Computed example of a mutant assay.
Amino acid sequence: MIPKNKSMTKSKFRRSVLLPFVVTFLFLGASSCSEIKDKKVLYFAHSLPITHPVHKGILAFQESLNEKSEGKLQLKIFPDAQLGSERETLELLQIGSVAMTKVSAASMSSFAPEYEVLGIPYLFKDSEHLFNVLEGDIGKELLAAGSEYLLRGICFYDAGSRSFYAKERAIQTPSDLKGMKIRVMNDKMSVDMVNTLGGSATPMAYGELYTALQQKVVDGAENNIPSFVTSNHYEICKYYTFDEHSMIPDVVVMSSTFWKTLSETEKKWVQDAANESVVKEKQYWKETVEENMKVLEEANVQFIYPDKTLFSNQADALTKTLMQDPKKKAMIERIRAVGAN
């Protein structure tokens, strides 16, 4: 079942205008293109700007797929939410109007609840632990789980760690979050996490956040360094706290409808190209963080390095609540066991 949106946002209006065009191209243009040029063109939509390291990873995917297929299978990329928000592009995949997207695992959890576990605060010790999980049996299970909802996971991209940033004051301890409206993704885990830590979680579309910060609709937000910079939120928020409360990866997803139209050879091209792009995206991410830290220093953003145990201890109440569910408990224990090895 496709989740329902509550209001007609700008991105939803944009999608309603573009959808007929997208459908016409994919089901008419792409087929005639295939007959004439012996190639298939898959639309890949995502919400990040072209300066973001994840977009660079997608470009690497595009290049690798073109090389492997000798131009027979290609990606046409629509960045910067041109076809809608993460939630909306996932809906487009479900109805078969767009072939692929990149979304946060938090957005996927609204469609495929198995992904919810990836948003649990302080579940992963470090990035090595995270990718040992994502590139092992657990990660494969999660990617496959989305197929039930017409959303086939292809691979995970590095999205670093998420931390708090604020406009008016530094966040040194969880008590500093009291009374602060913090923008979060429209995801139950993100809402519960901020509320558990003492803030007032405010779900909001990412594209609306800059203005919301300007107009003091919210007092701050939480995200990784590259997103903090490419969104220009650092122009408004001068306090960035490295509490690193979660490490939610990005997910490359393909419409199950499109996946079924591919031959076995084409499926292998897609998966191999995606796997190669993962390696490159990780490097792009590392390089971008280093560059972005210099940008933030020059912009006089104050970095706060708190005692993270103050945050993790308080967040543990949420984890204990989740572990009352036997399935979630089993998955959490499996993930922790990977980190212990």
Rank of each mutant, 00 (worst) to 15 (best):
I236H: 01
I236W: 04
I236K: 02
C237Q: 09
C237D: 08
K238F: 07
K238C: 05
Y239E: 10
Y240I: 01
Y240H: 00
T241V: 04
T241G: 05
F242E: 05
F242I: 03
D243P: 04
D243R: 01
D243H: 02
D243T: 11
E244I: 02
E244A: 00
S246F: 05
S246Y: 08
S246P: 08
M247S: 09
M247H: 14
M247Q: 14
I248N: 07
P249K: 03
P249H: 13
D250Q: 13
V251L: 00
V253P: 04
V253W: 08
S255I: 05
S255L: 05
S255K: 00
S255D: 11
T257P: 00
F258A: 15
W259C: 00
K260C: 06
K260H: 12
K260W: 04
T261I: 11
S263I: 09
S263Q: 02
S263W: 12
E264R: 03
T265L: 09
E266I: 09
K267Y: 02
K267C: 12
K268L: 13
K268C: 09
W269S: 06
W269Y: 15
V270T: 02
A273R: 00
A273M: 11
A274C: 13
N275P: 02
S277M: 14
K280C: 06
E281L: 11
E281K: 02
K282G: 12
Q283H: 08
Q283K: 15
Y284V: 02
W285Q: 05
E290L: 08
E290K: 12
M293L: 15
V295A: 06
V295P: 06
E297Q: 14
E298F: 01
E298D: 15
A299V: 09
A299Q: 14
N300G: 03
N300E: 14
N300M: 08
N300V: 10
V301T: 04
Q302P: 04
Q302K: 14
I304S: 01
I304M: 00
I304Q: 07
P306F: 04
P306T: 06
T309P: 06
T309S: 15
L310N: 06
F311C: 10
F311H: 02
F311V: 04
S312K: 12
S312Y: 12
N313R: 13
Q314K: 15
